[in-house]
Structure formats: C-alpha cells, structure tokens
C-alpha cells in the first residue's frame, strides 16, 4: 500500500517546512537577503548577508534572522556584528535548531532579515567618560563589538581632527583609550574573537591606542581565568564599560564595576525572543525597580543600574 501524503494535504503539496511566509507574497516587512560570505570562526560562524534596504544599525542593535526555507517556526535574534552598506554581518553560535540552520548556510543561500531592532549602546556616552572605554565580552557575547569598535574609531577620529560635540578629551597618558577584555571557555570558542582582533588592529593602525586581552577558562592559553578577572585587574575610576555575555558573567561584571567609583556600565542582554519588536511580551526582564522590561524593545542594551540597582 502506498500512502500519498502529498494528496489532499495542501501543506504537504506545497512544502512541509514552516520557515518563509509562502511564495509570491507581497508587502512584507522582512527582507529576503542573500548570504554573501561565510567565515568559520572556531565554534562559531560569521555570516555576512546582503540585505536589500538595510537602514544601518546602532552597535548593540539586533536583527531577526530565519533561513529560507527553514524547519523552524520563529526567527532568531542576533546582534549586528558589523555592517557596510547593505552587507550585514552576524556572529552565530550553533546552539539550537535555528542557529544551527543559520550556521549551515552557504554563499548564495537566502535568509529573512528583520531589523535593525532594539536599543543599542550609547556611543557618545561611552566616549565622553573621563577615562577609557572598556569592552567586556564572554563567548558569543563578542558579537556586537566589531561594530562598536568601528563606531568608536569614527568618533575618536572626528574628535582628533577637531570635531565638535562634547567628545574632545585629553588622551590618557601611557594607556589605551579602548580596552577590550574577552573571556572564552576554550580555544575553539575563541575563534570568534577574530573580527574583534581585526577591529582592534584597525584602530591601532589609525593611531588609536587600543588593547585586547583574552582569558581562557580551561587554562589552555595561559592561566585559568575569566573576563571578570581581567576586568578586576584593569578597571579604574572613570571608565565606561560595555558588556555582552551570559547572565552569570554579566552579574559578575556588575559586581566588579560597582566596587569602583565613577564607573558607568551598559549591558547587552541575551534572552529567548519571539517577535523582537515588543509585540509578544515574551522576553521580559525584571528590572531593579521591580518593573518588567521587554528585552527586545526596551533593550537589549540596558544601563547596569537599571538591571542590577545601585
């Protein structure tokens, strides 16, 4: 006996995947982009997608990505890692079905993109502090920082050629203006540091003092330590700190930062999201004042004191 699941079942006749909204639909708000580059970065993948109509992101903003076709129902929220016109890059860790699907895409493959979404880092607030900009990332939390570093470079260059705005600052004698502290589980995970390392090199080439340090939890490349150990060693009063990483790391970073006077922090938080635009109320976070924030709409970047209190 032959079963004919493709007869009578309209779903079976068209296709069984649930990814795209269907062929030939018009007036969609998502853009159907094409993968233009794939980089294998240790255990992560750097995906560059050409997104028609991309508006340009603030560092820390994210986009919803879904392969086309896809076996998943929902898109995945991913930080914008870098951008050049309509070429938008993402750093993706294959942690579940959706991210594995995205990591398996190859040049020319199609992917739906909605974004940029959410509130990113306040670049002006970071650069106008009395001391350095300190970037702290754990694992896949490196994702938003290549873009932040390139925007910091633009800001500092504007200042050094006599640009206006409150950004004029005297260089910190003997030390870097930007300190980047990355923590990884192991060497394989640290492959995703490459875009950050390249952004740091570019800053140095352009004459901006920038230093990068990495910590490895497995001790494979030096002492057993975390990004927070590096931060504990280097943080000083007046620093402005941008953080992205797992929840436990973020809490540990906050503990280090609150112990030093005049340190301001901003955290890019990760969470499961459905809509990415504030519609579903699924990604709520209890803030220090007891109110609920939607990470997608009110964040994903929050001031440390909003999240953790005083």
């Amino acid at each position: 006996m032959t079963s004919r699941p493709d007869r009578g079942s309209s779903a079976g006749r068209r296709r069984t995947v649930t990814g795209g909204p269907g062929p030939g639909l018009t007036g969609l708000s998502r853009s159907l982009g094409r993968v233009t580059a794939v980089r294998f970065l240790g255990s992560m993948v750097g995906l560059t997608v050409t997104v028609p109509g991309w508006r340009g992101a603030v560092p820390g903003q994210f986009a919803l990505l879904q392969a086309e076709p896809s076996r998943c129902f929902l898109a995945r929220a991913l930080s914008v890692s870098d951008e050049a016109g309509e070429k938008v890059s993402f750093l993706i860790a294959p942690v579940g079905d959706g991210t594995r699907e995205l990591c398996a895409l190859r040049g020319g493959d199609r992917v739906w993109v909605l974004g940029p979404l959410g509130k990113g880092f306040d670049v002006d607030a970071l650069v106008t502090g009395p001391e350095r900009v300190v970037i702290v990332a754990g694992g896949a939390g490196v994702a938003p920082f290549p873009l932040l570093l390139s925007r910091l470079l633009v800001k500092y260059q504007a200042v050094s050629v006599g640009g206006t705005g409150g950004g004029r600052r005297t260089p910190v004698a003997g030390g870097p203006k930007v300190l980047v502290l990355l923590g990884f589980r192991d060497g394989a995970q640290s492959g995703c540091a490459l875009p950050v390392q390249q952004a740091v090199s570019e800053m140095e080439e352009k004459g901006l003092r920038c230093r990068l340090e990495m910590a490895f939890e497995d001790g494979s490349r030096g002492p057993v330590e975390k990004a927070t150990d590096l931060l504990d060693r280097h943080l000083r009063s007046g620093d402005r700190v941008a953080v992205c990483g797992p929840g436990a790391m973020a809490a540990a970073v906050w503990k280090v930062c609150r112990a030093v006077p005049d340190v301001e922090t901003w955290f890019s938080l990760e969470t499961n999201m459905a809509c990415g635009v504030g519609s579903c109320h699924g990604c709520v976070l209890k803030l220090a004042d007891g109110s609920d924030a939607r990470v997608c709409h009110d964040g994903p970047v929050f001031a440390g004191k909003e999240v953790f209190g005083a």
Binding site: P21, L64, W112, C275
Partner: peptide, 11 residues
C-alpha cells in the same frame, strides 16, 4: 506567525 513577519496579515 506575526512574530516572524509583522505585516503578514496584509500579505
């Protein structure tokens, strides 16, 4: 399905 495509209804 609105969560992956906000303008799906019109489409």
């Amino acid at each position: 399905a609105t969560f992956r495509e906000p303008c799906l209804a019109r489409a």
